[in-house]
């Protein structure tokens, strides 16, 4: 049975868009989403809200688990792709796909790279990684529970491809934090 989307599709998605924009501008800072849909399994509420906010009929989405595909198609009207390699948005509810397997954009059109939403177990501020780069004045600390063991190696490779490379949205419960491709991460 399909559950409801945003209570107010226009205003709620605008509020969430502002949250995603702020989170992308200030990498690693944790934001609580102001409006949440009735997320169907396996989506967590934040990931569901970000998808409803960002995807539409012009943006195919890849989901690592197909259970929420009908819900997403119903509310966002987006095509759901079978392969992750060419989509502008991908969501990993389970294991994160290799960053290198996603669309990286091109030198001429780096904005055509994928944005990957990863559902993680927890986000904690003030401890863990040290983040630096555009949008961070000195240093920002972020701990992420639930990423693959080789994540930092993958991230370094992703950064080396700049201006190509994917951007990450980490979602836990009703919270999110973003890792744009420009951010540098070192072990805490």
């Amino acid at each position: 049975m399909i559950t409801a989307g945003f209570n107010d599709p226009v205003l709620d998605s605008q509020r969430c868009f502002r949250a995603v924009l702020d989170a992308m501008s200030r990498p690693g800072r944790i934001h609580r989403l102001p409006a949440l849909p009735e997320a169907p399994a396996p989506l967590n509420p934040a990931a569901a809200a970000v998808l409803l906010t960002l995807v539409d009929a012009d943006t195919p989405v890849w989901l690592d688990q197909p259970e929420a595909a009908d819900w997403l198609r119903f509310h966002a009207g987006c095509p759901v792709a079978a392969e992750p390699g060419a989509v502008p948005f991908a969501l990993a509810a389970g294991a994160m796909p290799a960053l290198a397997s996603l669309c990286q954009g091109s030198e001429e059109e780096p904005h055509l790279a994928a944005t990957l939403l990863v559902q993680v177990a927890a986000l904690r501020a003030g401890q863990g990684w040290r983040l630096a780069g555009p949008g961070i004045e000195h240093e920002h600390r972020l701990e992420v529970v639930g990423l693959p063991a080789d994540f930092l190696a993958q991230w370094a490779a992703n950064q080396a491809r700049f201006p190509r490379g994917v951007d990450l949205v980490l979602c836990a419960g009703d919270q999110l934090a973003c890792l744009p491709r420009s951010v540098q991460i070192t072990e805490g």
Binding site: I2, T3, A4, G5, P9, F74, H75
Partner: peptide, 8 residues
């Protein structure tokens, strides 16, 4: 009833 989507 409950609205699931729309009216829009």
């Amino acid at each position: 009833h409950r609205r699931l989507r729309g009216p829009e």
